[in-house]
Write a protein that binds this DNA or RNA. Structure first.
Lengths: 155, 155
DNA sequence: GTCGATGCAAACGTTTTGCACACTG
DNA sequence: CAGTGTGCAAAACGTTTGCATCGAC
C-alpha cells in the first residue's frame, strides 16, 4: 500500500485536460482510453463501478478492456484524482476525489445516503482522544436501515 | 437478504449446547461439524475468518469442507447467534453476536482497534435526525490511521 | 527507439452453488 | 424414511497479473 502525496492538491484538476496534464507530468501518457474514462468520470453519475465505467467507455471505444479501466483507475487514484469507496458487499465505486463524502447504506434496500463530513467530526474527535486514531470516514460506508425501510417494517 | 427475528435474543445462547438446542428448534440438525465449529467460535479468538475456522475444525475433523463451514456460518448468522464484519479488503471475520463491537482499522498497518458502541451514539443520533437513518456501526470497520502509524510518518 | 499502455486470457482470493451421497431425528 | 447436512468440484464474482504487442512522445 504505497502512498504518494496527492498531487491533485497542488494542481487544478477540475477538467479532463487538467488531469491529463497531471498524468503527463508524472511520466504517464495520454491515451484515448484514459481520456474517455476521465470523460465518463466527469460527466457520469457520482458512484460508478469499474464495470459500469468500462461499459460507458466501450460505447465509444469498444475494444477497451476491463483491465485497462482498472489500471487507469488505480493510476488516477495514486495521483489523488480519484477515490474509491465500498458501499456494500458488491463492487467498489469510484468518484472524483474532490467530491468525496461519507455514506450511509441501507442493508435492506441498498439505498445510499450521502452525508456531509461534519456528521463524523464527533466520532473523529472521540477516536482521536480515546485511541489516537485518525478516521477516514469515506472509504467504507456505514450500514444500517434507511428511513423508508424503518417505516416499512416498523421497529 | 431475508431476515429472521434474531431468536438468540429470546434464548440463552451462551454455550455450544444452547446454540445447538436453538438450531434444533428451527428444524436444524445437530451434526459434528456444527458442534466443532461452534466450539471453535466459543473457544477461539474473537475475529476468525471462515478459512481460519475451517482450519481449526479440521484439526479435529479433517474432512470438513470449507463450504460446510460457510453454510454453517450462514445458518448461525440467520439465527442471530453470529455476526460477521469486514475489517478491510480481505475475508470477513465472524464472531458471536453477543460480543459485537465497532472497529477502527489502520489502512497502513492493518491494526484493528475495538471500540465501544458508545463512541458511535453521537453519529447515530445525527444520522437519525438528519436522515431518519438507523446506523449499525458493527458491520464495516471505520478506516483510518492508528496512533503508531500517525506517529511514525508524522502529519 | 524507448518505455509506458493495452488487449487478452489466465490467475487470484473469497464466497456460493450443484449434485450425489450420508446422516440425523 | 423424510429431509437436512455434507464433501467435492466447479462456478461466480470482483479484481489483479503475465505477456506479447501497440502506440505516445
Amino acid at each position: 500500500m504505497s502512498r504518494v502525496a496527492p498531487a491533485s492538491h497542488l494542481h487544478d484538476v477540475s477538467t479532463v485536460e487538467d488531469v491529463l496534464a497531471l498524468v503527463r507530468e508524472h511520466g504517464g501518457r495520454i491515451t484515448s482510453s484514459r481520456r474517455i474514462l476521465l470523460e465518463a468520470l466527469f460527466a457520469g453519475p457520482e458512484h460508478q463501478t469499474a464495470e459500469e465505467l468500462a461499459t460507458v467507455v466501450q460505447t465509444r471505444a469498444p475494444d477497451v478492456a476491463l483491465s485497462t479501466v482498472y489500471r487507469n483507475l488505480e493510476e488516477l487514484e495514486r495521483l489523488g484524482v480519484l477515490v474509491h469507496s465500498h458501499l456494500g458487499h458488491g463492487p467498489a465505486t469510484y468518484h472524483l476525489a474532490a467530491g468525496a463524502h461519507c455514506h450511509f447504506v441501507c442493508q435492506e434496500c441498498g439505498a445510499a445516503v450521502e452525508a456531509p463530513d461534519e456528521l463524523f467530526t464527533g466520532l473523529a474527535r472521540s477516536a482521536r482522544t480515546h485511541f489516537g486514531f485518525e478516521i477516514d470516514p469515506h472509504h467504507f460506508a456505514v450500514l444500517g436501515r434507511c428511513a423508508a425501510c424503518c417505516a416499512a417494517d416498523g421497529g
